[in-house]
Structures are given as structure tokens and as C-alpha cells.
Computed example of a mutant assay.
Amino acid sequence: MNRAHRSLNATILMMLVLALTACSVVRVAYNQANHLVYWQLNKAFDFNDDQSAKVKVAIRQWFEWHRQTELPIYTQFLTRAQKEALAPVSATLACERRQELEGWGRKALDQAVPAMAELVMSLSPEQVKHLEAYQAETNEDFRDDYLQDDPKDRQDAAAKFVLKVAELFYGRLDKAQRDHVKHEIAAQPLNAKHVYDERLVYQRDFLQLIRRLQAQKATPSQAQQALRELFQQFFDPPKEPLRSQRQQWIATGCKFTSSLHQQTTPEQKEKAAQRLRDWETDLRILAKQTP
């Protein structure tokens, strides 16, 4: 697998962020996203013909819902964010905005649950093994990208990731700003090893859930409920110490967002606001389009 595929598998977030590098690209990326989602899911599950047809319909219906229901909400968010980008951003405000974004993720997953439950119950033993092998492959990619043997290489990889996102908004950061990012990343309690360990847990839990539901011959409602409980645990870890760790990671991440924004110049803040205006324009157009 080439480097581009490995990066895509390791971090869908970065793929999405980098897709939004120009207003025209936003519209192209969103209108093609259903194909990308299907491609990624098929790599994971290796659909048969019947599953392939059903999954394509489910993805199309999900994006119809998302375009009509969610994009208008995102545009309102971006309108507020433009004004906020021009002023100081406190850690409290950063956490409030992060909570909004998480809410979008929860809602998007919940909307997909019925189709996911149907897919899970249709998987053959060979497809479950295929998923397990796919997970192992992507985990190897993640280790290659972010869990190098040298701690400095790990910090450099994490800082590079954050700098790409920051410079998408603010433009090129100067040396002092880049050094600030590197210093803050090194001091964060959350690191790539934590992310990797969590991903292993949720991958294991997902595989166990599939096998348990199939062994029990679960009804659609039972499968949906089990998936919703699994996703709830992802967002709200039920046990310590992970619950407290997650809260600490979020709090320090919000402080970092605030401190980085404080380091930017008025020109960089205006660039961030303009980026958000461009995205708002694109999302308004997308929300009105018929796919």
C-alpha cells in the first residue's frame, strides 16, 4: 500500500481537512464523498453484490439527509466562527465549539446506525476475518506514521500533523509560532500511543460485538441498540481511568487551541476568518443543490 493510502487509513480527519483547501474543492469533495465512503467501507468489509447495492443506497440516503439537515447547521456555526476568529479565543470557548463538533459526529453516527446494523448482521465469517485483517493493516500504517522508535520522531510527526491543520487556517506560521506548536505538542498528555491503544480497544470491541450479535441472531432493533451503546462508550468512556484521561486530554487540547490562536497576528486571524467565510459560502451552495 502506498504512502497516500496509508495516510488516508491512519487519519480520516486529515484527509477531510486537506480536502477543504479551496472553496471549489469543498464542493467537489462533498459531492464525491459518497464514492469515497463506499470505497473505504468496501476495503474494510469486501462486500458481495447484494451488500454492495444496499450499502450504496444507504450511503446515498445518508448524504441526502446530511445535505438537507446538517449543512444548514454547519453554515450557522461558520458564521459565528468567522467573528470569533478575529478576537481572542478562550479555552472555554474552544471547548464549547469542540463540543458542538462532537455533537455533529454523534448525530451523524446515529443516523447511520440502522444501515450499519443491517450490514453487520449480513457479514459472513470470511468478511469478519477480512475486517480483522484490514484493521491490522491500518494499525501497522498508523505505527509507521506516528509510533516511530525514536520519541523525537514521534513528536515531530504529531507536530507536523497539527501544523498542517493550523496553517490551513492561518497560513504559514513563522518560526516562533512553529516552535510554540512543537513545544505545546511535546507537553500534551495525549500522544500517539494513547490514540493507538484506544483504537485497538474499539476495534476489538467492534469485532466482538459483530460476532456476539450474529451468534445471538439479534433482531434489527437489538443490533441497532448494541451499536449505539458501543458508540456511546467511544464518546463517553464508562470506566476509569480512561474517563478522567479523556476529560484531561480535552481540557489541555482546548488550552492549546486558545494559546495558538493568541500567537497569531491580526493578518493571520483575518486569513482564518476568510477561510471560514469561503467554507460557509460553499456549504450554503451545497445545501441547496440536488445531488
Rank of each mutant, 00 (worst) to 15 (best):
Leu147Glu: 04
Phe235Asn: 05
Asp145Thr: 02
Asp278Arg: 08
Gln99Met: 10
Ala226Glu: 09
Ala166Cys: 10
Glu229Phe: 01
Gln233Val: 07
Val57Lys: 14
Arg97Phe: 07
Gln203Met: 05
Gln245Ala: 09
Lys193Pro: 00
Ala112Ser: 11
Leu101Thr: 02
Leu230Ile: 01
Leu168Tyr: 01
Trp279Arg: 09
Val181Asn: 01
Ala29Asn: 10
Gln76Leu: 12
Pro72Thr: 09
Pro189Asn: 14
His130Glu: 02
Gln82Thr: 06
Gln225Val: 09
Lys288Ile: 02
Gln40Gly: 08
Arg80Ala: 08
Val17Met: 13
Ser24Trp: 02
Ala19Thr: 09
Leu41Ala: 13
Glu102Leu: 11
Gly103Tyr: 08
Ile250Lys: 08
Lys164Val: 11
Trp249Lys: 10
Lys129Ser: 12
Asp150Phe: 09
Val162Lys: 05
Tyr170Lys: 00
Ala176Ile: 04
Ala159His: 03
Asn48Leu: 03
Ala287Asn: 10
Thr219Pro: 01
Ile210Lys: 06
Arg246Asp: 06
Asp156Gly: 01
Phe161Ile: 07
Arg27Asp: 06
Ala22Gln: 06
Cys95Met: 11
Pro291Asn: 05
His35Asn: 15
Ile73Lys: 12
Ser7His: 15
Ala19Gly: 12
Lys271Ile: 10
Pro238Thr: 01
Arg6Thr: 06
Glu118Gly: 03
Ala251Asp: 11
Thr265Asn: 03
Ser7Val: 13
His183Gly: 13
Pro125Thr: 13
Gly103Cys: 09
Arg275Ile: 05
Thr281Ser: 04
Val113Gly: 04
Asp110Val: 10
Asp144Lys: 02
Tyr196Pro: 05
Glu102Pro: 00
Ala10Tyr: 03
Arg27Gln: 07
Val201Lys: 14
Val128Pro: 02
Gln208Thr: 10
Thr264Pro: 00
Asn34Tyr: 11
Lys43Gln: 14
Val17Ile: 15
Gln68Trp: 07
Val181Gln: 01
Ile73Trp: 05
Ala108Lys: 13
Pro189Ile: 08
Gln68Ile: 05
Pro88Ala: 01
Arg172Val: 07
Arg211Thr: 15
Pro291Met: 12
Pro88His: 06
Leu8Ile: 15
Phe77Ala: 11
Val195Asn: 04
Asp46Gly: 01
Glu229Ser: 10
Asn42Cys: 12
Ala157Val: 05
Lys288Asp: 04
Glu118Ile: 06
Asn191Leu: 00
Pro189Arg: 13
Asp141Lys: 11
Glu126Lys: 14
Leu123Ile: 12
Leu283Val: 10
Phe142Glu: 03
Cys95Glu: 07
Ala251Met: 06
Tyr38Leu: 11
Phe142Leu: 08
Ala218His: 08
Val120Asn: 00
Ile59Phe: 04
Gln51Cys: 03
Ala158Gly: 08
Arg27Met: 04
His180Val: 14
His66Asn: 05
Trp104Tyr: 15
Asp153Ala: 13
Glu102Thr: 12
Gln263Val: 01
Ala85Lys: 03
Leu213Ala: 06
Leu86Cys: 09
